[in-house]
Design a protein around this nucleic acid. Structure first.
Lengths: 238, 238
DNA sequence: ATCATCTAATGATAAGATTATTGGCTTGAA
DNA sequence: TTCAAGCCAATAATCTTATCATTAGATGAT
């Protein structure tokens, strides 16, 4: 079993640490990264794992290497913004001032499309699952009104969105959906902490689920768009 | 200087080779990959680079490792479809039967959004650049009518699309645009080889450019959508 | 200035120590 | 007997260390 409690590997730790340093601008505008030997002692890792880390960071578009010349951090335009690690690091450093607008804009184009596709392509079972999750969302909402933590509601909300992406029967949309879901799980804590935000969003969630259930693509897309817009409003209030 | 003529690294070669093997289903439905020592001799690479390769393939969602149990290829749903390497490998193996529909569907949701955003957000210079590229596209189109190769036209077409994504002022859309552009450069050879396909698509390209020039988001989105639809028609004829 | 040479950095290989996980074996109690 | 908990060894990834090769900037003699 992939136990979540096992100690993080040296690789994972080093990747995370160096990734954060790069994204936070720790190496200046020139972006010259110390040579391998120096990085090893700074990060406390052997040259082997460090090179693995640098390869992965290169794959994420953060750095590129050249013999003799050394490592350089790449211009930000090359950073892979579909990568959850990169997104996490960005989110940590410049929290919700820099990329938030673009992220919401991106959701605004992708989520309606996914809802539309789901309404057309979902299996009967998927439609039932989505409706069911919407029902559970309502239950959890009421539980919150009684003073319960919104942790469980967040989880259900996350599952609801993912179910829609899955039902779109488009693996590229599902892929993007995973990325969006990952960010949402961090953002949602902010979004829903606004009092009544969950209750307010409930009718739109139901509208999405019902539109998908009856195969109305246009309505599903419109409701999904409204839902993102509502999130937008809530986030801008914080 | 990053010379394009320098010999490919062992790392790049091994990554490509192993990546293709995995995507082509070379390791069976179980997806059990031989252990490191065995892979080394099969691929002719040292353990060091092999581990770097495996880490990158893990980052792309293709494989995951566990001590004692070995390397396993991950279920296809986890493969990172926003990664150009993965896409290349997939495209090579199951060429334009499996993922083509989903790719075009994805373009259909993203490109209109990018055109829309570009119409609203582009700078004056960007609008001029897009119009200029559209004009060059017309020139190249006429050159093709005279029997010239469509290689140059393809390059301009690619630049045209990328300029629109860039003008959207949304770095996530730009990122996705890079991915789409990468695939287009391979698909476009098929698309435009249909006789007259270029000429037929020209009016729509002009419609996009003009809509962006005058800041008409709705018209730009609609023209972009029509353009993808036209591509769809051409591709289904092959 | 130009060219050969030196030097310092990444690229690649090899070998060994370490750590974690599985699977079997044993032990012990119901 | 049967089942479960705990121990042990085999195995594979993980990590370290050392060494050589390759590359390109820097140096210096012509």
């Amino acid at each position: 079993m992939a136990d979540s409690t096992r100690r993080p590997s040296v690789f994972a730790y080093t990747l995370d640490k160096l990734g954060r340093q790069i994204v936070s601008g720790h190496f200046g505008v020139e972006g010259v990264i110390p040579r391998e030997a120096k990085l090893c002692e700074q990060l406390g890792a052997s040259r082997g794992v460090l090179r693995e880390v640098l390869r992965v960071l290169g794959d994420k578009g953060l750095v590129s290497a050249q013999p003799k010349v050394g490592m350089r951090v790449q211009p930000e335009i090359n950073w892979n913004l579909m990568d959850t690690d990169v997104l996490d690091w960005l989110w940590e450093h410049r929290s919700r001032t820099d990329y938030l607008r673009e992220f919401l804009e991106f959701r605004m184009t992708v989520e309606p499309a996914a809802a539309h596709a789901a309404a057309l392509n979902a299996t009967e079972e998927e439609r039932r699952e989505i409706s069911s999750l919407c029902g559970r969302l309502q239950d959890e909402s009421e539980r919150i009104m009684d003073g319960a933590s919104d942790e469980r509601a967040q989880k259900v909300d996350f599952q609801f969105h993912m179910a829609i992406f899955r039902a779109s029967r488009n693996r590229m949309l599902i892929n993007v959906g995973n990325m969006i879901g990952h960010i949402m799980r961090q953002q949602i804590a902010v979004t829903t902490s606004a009092p009544g935000a969950f209750r307010e969003g409930l009718p739109l969630h139901r509208a999405i689920a019902e539109a998908i259930a009856r195969g109305d693509g246009e309505a599903a897309a419109q409701a999904a768009e409204e839902n993102v817009r509502l999130t937008q409003v809530h986030l801008q209030k914080t």
